[in-house]
């Protein structure tokens, strides 16, 4: 038993710092692709909802492709597939980008999460109560103002739980980057395993991933409560006839 604990401590000292370095790479990869994918998602969702087929059909095809194929296949398509057009990329001065596994993973993740997030945003926009929009129109709002002041703020609140799930899925999927030689948490773990041949390094990685996802879930739950106070679950222990506390107490800020 003591031998085992000493071995565990040795593993942690030897590979711990590299695994933590991998955590940083994972968070960078996820953070950057979520930011870029998030920026893409709103225009994409609007194009997807547009009545103009020139906007709607390409957006539909894009979302359809990236949601219908495995992320690993998308990464291979971008990272290895670009090699087939090397001459053209070199001529265009883009080869430095596609040569690098890091940029390719980032591009694949961004395009992938952009497609999923666009669907989430679309769901949010379609969930905005019609009366809100009619009321805004009646006040004379139109187009950009209507979206900025009424539709998007409500849509974001509706989309919040689904987007939280998407972020967690993205943290999990980012481990795929290790397959194209990126040393994120998963990549460092695979390296540590190939050197030590101890299964415990995979368990350490699992614990680190759990810490990331669980602490994120905690933060997100707070954010949801802050942005959607009206959705707070009523106290189930209260007598049936009593109205939910949120209706009685003054709204807290």
């Amino acid at each position: 038993m003591e031998d085992y604990l000493a071995m565990l401590a040795d593993l942690a000292v030897r590979y711990g710092p590299r695994l933590l370095g991998g955590v940083v790479v994972t968070l960078q990869l996820v953070g950057i692709s979520l930011a870029l994918g998030g920026m893409m998602s709103v225009p994409l969702a609007l194009a997807r909802l547009s009545r103009n087929p020139v906007l709607r059909l390409p957006a539909f095809a894009y979302v359809f492709f990236f949601r219908g194929t495995p992320l690993l296949a998308q990464i291979y398509l971008i990272y290895y597939g670009s090699g087939q057009f090397r001459a053209a990329f070199e001529q265009a001065g883009l080869w430095w980008f596609f040569r690098d596994a890091w940029y390719c993973a980032l591009l694949a993740f961004t395009l992938n999460t952009g497609a999923y997030t666009a669907e989430i945003v679309r769901g949010g926009i379609q969930g905005v109560p019609l009366g809100d929009i009619e009321a805004a129109r009646a006040c004379g709002m139109s187009g950009f103002t209507l979206y900025r002041r009424i539709i998007l703020p409500t849509a974001y609140r509706i989309a919040l739980p689904a987007y939280g799930n998407e972020i967690i899925l993205m943290v999990k999927s980012s481990s795929i980057a290790s397959i194209i030689t990126i040393f994120d948490l998963m990549g460092e773990t695979k390296l540590a395993f190939s050197r030590s041949f101890r299964l415990e390094v995979y368990l350490m990685a699992a614990a680190l991933y759990l810490v990331i996802t669980l602490s994120f879930e905690w933060v997100w739950a707070r954010l949801e409560r802050w942005l959607n106070p009206q959705r707070e679950a009523p106290d189930l222990k209260a007598p049936d006839l009593q109205p939910p506390a949120a209706l009685v107490e003054p709204q807290r800020q």
Binding site: K172, S175, M186, Y209, L210
Partner: peptide, 19 residues
């Protein structure tokens, strides 16, 4: 459920395969 939702599927696969 918490473990499955928080651990990457790729890692689960390695854990099962090598484990």
């Amino acid at each position: 459920t918490t473990a499955i939702r928080g651990i990457p599927d790729l890692l689960t696969l390695f854990l099962i395969y090598f484990g």
